[in-house]
Design a protein around this nucleic acid. Structure first.
Lengths: 327, 327
DNA sequence: CATTCGATTGGTAACGCTGTCAATAATAAT
DNA sequence: ATTATTATTGACAGCGTTACCAATCGAATG
């Protein structure tokens, strides 16, 4: 109990470093170091502090720490929306790894609106995150400048075709679409069609379709037709558009869907219309459990076997400090 | 540019209140008030400050604000996982409303593990969130105590059967299951089966099954059989279990699935096995676009028509201060 | 005209923690 | 033994903002 007034119940004001320091008879900074698991702490001190902290039920105040160190254990994650299954899986993966490093995700959704995305990024940056994850590679100058000011790592996901601000993790939508075209033609299909939705809003789907079409022409099996629904993608739209497409182009022998839910709808239509769907088994197989622990080699956050240490850029662990060059 | 050394490029250190105050010739606190859109600010002052802030490209440092005010514009959101479609939709909805109020979600995933949930909650609370959203009603004393210490609003979601810490938003899984039983029996089905997965890990599904079974007995159409797969739910599991169940109990005329992906798998199986599925259209219809703006009446964050104001508990807007009683 | 009350602005002191620098003990090197 | 190096601990000063209190100004009151 940090402060106990005698007159009345007293506000159980937050337990701070100071309280722990007082109880354990060491300096505040030492408590701070123990809590952060810094290197070069004697076991004796560590034990003393931990005991006091447990007794008081101390929880570090990350806000104060972030203010002083100008970097928090938060990672800004900016996604376009949660409606697309892809992004919930992405977020799941992000969170899993962040958690292993004691980091937390602060989420921002742009709803595919660049202006809104800008606002969201600005908002999230005001939390001094230790890094930021953006979706896509198309970000304007303002974004670049804002992020540069904070000097934090940026990872852009979902796309790798273009120039990333720093680093990009994703797939080449062009190559993916070409691979799909190759696969279909090799499998013997010659009358491919394409179904997209929401007017191809996320540019990535447009890039995919174009690459798909070009490759098909190269392979001598050009697209029979394509449909881009104006609505957002959904299983219902997928089913309806598929029905219409098959009806007006009965010679179509395969369909490339821009989205998983569109494909699902198409699948429903095909099944109920009695069409043969040779790939359904593959689909089912790929719908298997998405969970399971993903082991990941991280930096050894709590082991400091050697001598001199420094924070690594990600700020989540320590590494040996390079020996300073003598003059 | 807050500080520009003449000797070298100089670190473009963060633009702060002080810089804005200097440029606009007012006090720091006034700048702070303008940025927070506090009441009782003259238009002249507001304009001066805003202009200076724009010139400098000032962005408030939420971390500092949170430290001083002991409350941030973050809302802690603790969900079990992102693998279940339900939770990504829930998160989508949460984010949409929070964004309207200038709040941001900090995400924590418990992976259905109470111990891990505790860690995550502790972690998130260290950011002085302005509120916290938990999943389910079953939380132990420690959680209750930690939250009580911070004195913030708690919303528990997904379930309303039990005693919430403060408030709960969700459905009655018991009633839902009974309603499903009623519906099926009324629709003429008499040989119901049940399929669940992952050993009924989230207690809610267990509650649902029991209520379903009881109601079915009451209605004179007891469960033919049930299957609880040990693996996590997935379409593949749904398909396999359905196949097995139908084979061993061919008289089954309807199935209650614990999860949407299980049901999807069941649907696939049924379709490819040529079974009639009277409800597929309903399913398709319900898979429609999940997006769309959800209008919501919030508190008027930026209007202060009257005289004396104070922060409202949620800390996202102002309300008139009640007149202090005279002695 | 003096007084009151509310509207508007400013000054000061933290919030709780960690970066920086410094001091002391312990150990190894010469 | 003496010096160099490393391991370990501490003191101090803010980080950038806002709570709290005080001051000023104007208009309305009596």
């Amino acid at each position: 109990m940090p402060s106990s007034g005698s007159s009345r119940p007293a506000i159980p004001s937050r337990v701070t470093l100071k309280d722990v320091a007082r109880l354990s008879g060491v300096s505040e900074i030492s408590v701070s170091r123990v809590m952060r698991d810094a290197p070069n702490i004697s076991k004796k001190l560590r034990d003393k502090v931990n005991e006091a902290a447990d007794t008081l039920g101390y929880t570090p105040n990350r806000v104060a720490g972030a203010l002083k160190s100008k970097s928090s254990k938060l990672v800004a994650v900016v996604l376009p929306s949660m409606s697309n299954e892809v992004f919930s899986q992405v977020l799941d993966g992000i969170e899993a790894i962040l958690a292993q490093h004691g980091l937390n995700a602060v989420l921002g959704l742009s709803d595919y609106d660049p202006e809104r995305e800008l606002r969201v990024i600005r908002e999230l940056l005001s939390w001094s995150p230790t890094g930021i994850i953006l979706t896509g590679l198309h970000h304007n100058e303002t974004v670049a400048k804002m992020i540069a000011q904070q000097n934090i790592p940026v990872v852009q996901i979902m796309d790798i075709e273009g120039t990333p601000l720093q680093s990009a993790v994703g797939i080449s939508h062009t190559k993916a679409a070409r691979a799909a075209a190759d696969y279909l033609v090799e499998a013997g299909y010659r009358k491919p069609a394409y179904i997209g939705a929401w007017s191809e809003r996320p540019e990535r789907s447009h890039a995919r379709r174009i690459a798909f079409e070009i490759r098909l022409v190269e392979l001598g099996a050009p697209l029979v037709t394509h449909r881009i629904a104006p609505e957002r993608s959904s299983a219902l739209v997928g089913a309806e558009v598929t029905a219409e497409l098959i009806k007006s182009h009965p010679d179509t022998d395969c369909v490339f869907y821009a989205n998983d839910d569109l494909a699902l709808g198409g699948l429903f239509h095909a099944m109920s219309a009695g069409l043969s769907i040779p790939m359904i088994l593959q689909f089912l197989a790929s719908t298997g459990s998405k969970s399971g622990k993903r082991p990941r080699s991280g930096c050894p956050a709590s082991k400091h076997p050697a001598s001199k240490w420094e924070r690594v850029p990600l700020n989540c662990c320590w590494r040996p400090k390079p020996r300073a060059p003598r003059l």
